[in-house]
Design a protein around this nucleic acid. Structure first.
Length: 398
DNA sequence: AATTCGGGGAA
DNA sequence: TTCCCAGAATT
């Protein structure tokens, strides 16, 4: 046991010394404004430092104070988050900022219960805010920390299990040197990011290599133990890029997604589910696909004529893999084209059935549609996959 | 305890 | 390709 205590003391001391010497100069480390620390921590959830930096700079330029964020239109916040992913983080962050305005007079609270009660703030972020911004001795256990601790202390528990994180928090709490919670927690994550990496850890330059149990056993590459996530399920979708006519000339049709679920409240090109698309297995023809899409558009009050199959696009979410086939349409102002393509007979209708999915596939029937021009893109948040499509359509839309 | 939430960088 | 990243909310 004495050896164990020495091992812990050694770990904390050496890690802190290493951090003081080699920490990165990151934007959110240049001050200790709890609001800015908080914003950075939310952005950093499941997201790399290099990805976050430009978003952080832009975000705090647009919303310099918690009050600015609380008073902004939600659309502005979402637009600022565009491309960063996990958009509920942005909506929760703003909701929490409004919480702070109402409950705490605009001052980020410095106690555990109040911080943990903020929307979008879970166990990790609670510890991160309290320790980094207020130097309180709370653990902040993320993926980096679990990797470092699992190796140094040779912990073989599956880090995907809830109980393992609790175990790690108790261990991490006991490692925090008195008065150095802020630096120590950041040091732990910094080590995981720069040295104790998932693959090919740089043990030879690690400040705590001498007492790292996994290194001594030669098993550092096998830790942490982590059960594999399920692969994303494939989904096939038919999307429409509708060019406006007449008063809509120079515009394209977009719609806003529902308030909840995947990509909530983001804007997108209209699309419908399909069982498959041409080139993906069955080699289905494009005609029936365009027919179904035209019917969908007509139902939305937008008669349109198909022009061509424009492009395919893929996009992987955590749990879904989208295969998109995008068709270009031209608005047919004046007459309802719900009947579908001219010249498509019964055979085409039967082929169209092959696209249909088995379950209920009705898209949001009350979806909000809008004809937009390129300048409107500055105010509307789109998922990256649709930004790519629009950019390929024309640089005007990039 | 399992699923649902994006997107991209690195090997 | 595969992994996984300064995770949280929901069911």
């Amino acid at each position: 046991m004495q050896d164990n205590i020495d091992s812990k003391t050694y770990f904390s001391t050496e890690l802190l010394e290493w951090y003081d010497r080699s920490k990165r100069d990151l934007p959110w480390r240049r001050q200790r404004d709890p609001y800015l620390i908080w914003v950075s921590e939310i952005m950093l959830q499941q997201t790399r430092v290099d990805t976050v930096i430009p978003y952080f700079q832009r975000f705090i330029g647009r919303f310099p104070t918690l009050k600015d964020l609380a008073e902004a239109p939600e659309e502005d916040v979402l637009k600022c988050w565009e491309g960063l992913g996990y958009y509920s983080r942005a909506r929760n962050l703003q909701a929490a900022a409004r919480q702070v305005m109402e409950r705490h007079g605009g001052v980020v609270p410095a106690n555990k219960a109040d911080v943990a009660a903020l929307k979008g703030v879970g166990p990790y972020t609670t510890g991160a805010i309290l320790s980094i911004a207020f130097n309180q001795p709370e653990p902040a256990v993320d993926g980096n920390v679990m990797r470092v601790l699992s190796r140094y202390f040779l912990i073989r528990d599956d880090i995907m299990k809830t109980g393992t994180r609790t175990l790690m928090e108790e261990l991490a709490a006991g490692l925090i040197p008195r008065g150095r919670a802020s630096d120590f927690n950041q040091a732990l994550m910094e080590l995981g990011a720069l040295v104790c990496t998932p693959k090919s850890p740089q043990c030879l330059v690690c400040p705590v290599m001498a007492h790292c149990a996994a290194r001594i056993e030669g098993v550092e590459e096998t830790l942490p133990v982590k059960s594999k996530a399920k692969p994303p399920r494939p989904e096939y979708r038919l999307a429409a890029l509708v060019e406006g006519d007449g008063e809509h000339a120079g515009r394209v049709l977009v719609r806003r997604r529902p308030d909840t679920g995947l990509l909530a409240r983001m804007w997108e090109l209209p699309h419908i589910p399909a069982a498959a698309i041409a080139g993906e297995g069955a080699g289905l023809p494009d005609g029936p696909a365009m027919d179904r899409l035209a019917a969908e558009l007509a139902a939305a009050g937008v008669p349109a004529q198909p022009v061509e199959a424009f492009m395919d696009a893929e996009h992987t979410f955590s749990h879904i893999h989208w295969n998109l086939r995008v068709f270009r349409f031209h608005e047919a102002a004046g007459h309802a084209a719900a009947a579908g393509l001219p010249g498509l007979g019964l055979a085409a209708a039967e082929a169209g059935a092959a696209y249909e999915t088995s379950g209920s596939e009705l898209e949001e029937d009350s979806a909000e549609y809008r004809w937009i021009k390129p300048e409107d893109m500055a105010a509307l948040a789109f998922p990256n996959v649709f930004l790519r499509i629009l950019k390929q359509y024309s640089p005007l839309w990039g």
